[in-house]
């Protein structure tokens, strides 16, 4: 494994001088970020990156990452910051190309930690096929940050024809999910609470752009995509139902939840449908194409179980109904805030 290029004996932790605009900041950017992100990153030494984009409409998005702990089973704040923005672009049907990376560092953050995060970002960017081309660094006083905050923005280009989004949803559409749900949220909660689980739950954080590209490339009639991040799969489908004013039904028994995830959810009194994911999305697709889409998803996500979880029905009220294994039906609605673990 490489070692941190900033001499740890000199600067074992981030100091205010690393954000002061002087030689220490230049050295941090040159020796840590530019050296890690590669020769094409931060390339121009100008105030902006200059990019050549292929023809087509441009998608542009931004996201901030404030996760605690910074490292968790299955990922860390660095890989998350890449996946989050890459996936937002993919959900618009775009091929992600370039990212920016702004970091707010808390004075006293171990340099080794920053180095590990930067390496993780590079690995995640390579896996997603994107480049980090510009960035920014600020340092705040000790106690004014939570170690490290990252904001990434990204641009991508729409290669494929046709509109996707709530307006394209049609009655009869199949609703798919690309794998078992609720693992990211439970991985974070378990790491935070130091729950003594038999084996740690690993986050589902992963880039979705290659799978989405494959779905479009196969010519499948995709009507809407939404990544099921905060608020979980339930919030993602509820938002699409409301925005499209189409009614949906989900089949509870068809929604894949891994056994250890389900156990941890039960323990804390949480509903996996509302727990965050970072590598899961719902896909609304013409029902005739659902099986082919599932086959493709299975090849892209071999470690999990993509599934058809629901259907768009005829109603136009924007409601989501969940059918329980014994036939009871109940409405699904957005929660007012985060789910809170229960007392007993």
């Amino acid at each position: 494994m490489n070692t941190c290029p900033i001499p740890l004996a000199d600067y074992p932790v981030v100091t205010l001088a690393h954000g002061g605009g002087g030689s220490m900041m230049r050295r941090l950017i040159r020796d840590l970020f530019a050296a890690t992100f590669g020769p094409d990153s931060l390339q121009s030494h100008q105030d902006s990156a200059l990019l050549d984009l292929p023809p087509g409409r441009v998608a542009f998005t931004t996201d901030s990452f404030v996760v605690k702990p910074l490292f968790f089973p299955g990922g860390d704040i660095g890989s998350l910051a890449i996946h989050g923005t890459v996936n937002d672009l993919a959900m618009a049907g775009a091929t992600p190309l370039y990212l920016s990376c702004a970091m707010i560092l808390e004075e006293g953050l171990p340099m080794e930690t920053l180095w590990r995060v930067a390496q993780s970002m590079k690995q995640a960017a390579d896996a997603a096929g994107v480049q980090i081309v510009t960035g920014d660094t600020k340092v705040v006083d000790k106690g004014k940050g939570d170690g490290l905050f990252i904001t990434t923005s990204g641009v991508g280009v729409l290669e494929f024809e046709g509109e996707t989004g709530p307006g394209a949803i049609r009655p009869g559409d199949a609703i798919l999910v690309n794998g078992d749900i609720a693992r990211h949220g439970m991985a974070i909660l378990a790491a935070r609470a130091e729950l003594a689980l038999e084996s740690p739950i690993d986050s589902d954080s992963t880039p979705l752009n290659h799978a989405v590209h494959a779905l479009f490339d196969a010519g499948l009639d995709i009507h809407a995509l939404r990544d099921a991040t905060r608020g979980g799969v339930a919030s993602a489908v509820i938002e699409l139902a409301r925005d499209s004013r189409h009614d949906l039904t989900l089949t509870e028994a068809a929604i894949p939840v891994r056994e250890d995830t389900r156990g941890a959810c039960e323990l804390l009194g949480l509903d996996p449908l509302y727990v965050a994911n970072e590598g899961r999305f719902v896909c609304f697709i013409h029902p005739d194409h659902a099986e082919r889409a599932l086959d493709l998803l299975r090849t892209h996500f071999p470690d999990t179980t993509p599934a058809r979880i629901g259907t768009v029905t005829e109603g136009r009220t924007g409601r989501v109904t969940l059918t329980s294994p014994f036939g009871a039906r109940r409405p699904l609605d957005l929660l007012s805030g985060e789910q809170l673990p229960r007392i007993c």
Binding site: S324, A328, R330
Partner: peptide
């Protein structure tokens, strides 16, 4: 309420919800 158990009961059987919520 979540599993709709009350809907499976014969008409006339009513479930009243008790005080057992510590919060």
């Amino acid at each position: 309420i979540k599993f709709g158990i009350d809907e499976l009961l014969p008409p006339g059987v009513t479930l009243l919800h008790g005080p057992g919520c510590p919060v």
